[in-house]
């Protein structure tokens, strides 16, 4: 159980993913419209690097042969066999109650950082950082 400071919040843009190593785990951190989520980067199906898959929406149908996309950007489709997972919950689309991938808590926390460009007087700048909790 650890706290890991990942990067400044503005270094991971909406729609993007950053894959990091922490405590011997590969973990993907996603920015979805300004909110951050973390998934284990291992597909429970065959161990593929899940978070390197296509980030997409959820295809739904109200009647046969009609198709629309909802929840744009909230689904990751595994790069190997296409299994879909809800980035927010880690649950698979095809069987959400039984097939899921591990999620982790992510927070955005302001932190003080000394500005090295100012030599004469010590100055602290407050910045938002993405922090992962395992």
């Amino acid at each position: 159980m650890g706290r890991h400071v990942i990067c400044r919040a503005d270094e991971l843009q909406p729609g993007a993913v950053r894959i990091i190593e922490a405590e011997k785990r590969s973990i993907g951190i996603f920015n979805i419209r300004g909110d951050f989520y973390a998934l284990r980067n291992t597909c429970p199906h065959k161990g593929a690097p899940l978070c390197r898959g296509i980030i997409t929406g959820l295809a739904v149908s109200d009647e046969p042969l009609q198709l629309r996309i909802t929840r744009d950007g909230e689904i990751v489709r595994c790069p190997w066999h296409g299994w879909e997972f809800d980035i927010l919950s880690g649950r698979s689309v095809y069987n959400p109650h039984r097939m899921r991938v591990k999620t982790y808590d992510v927070a955005v926390e302001p932190m003080a950082e000394e500005d090295p460009s100012v030599e004469t007087y010590p100055v602290q700048v407050e910045e938002d950082y993405i922090v992962l909790y395992i």
Binding site: T56, L58, A59, V60, S61, E63, P64, L65, Q66, L67, R77, H81, G82, W83, E84, V93, Y94
Partner: peptide, 9 residues
């Protein structure tokens, strides 16, 4: 399981 999204009905 792989291609459900192409025929979500």
């Amino acid at each position: 399981k792989s291609l459900r999204y192409q025929a979500p009905w």
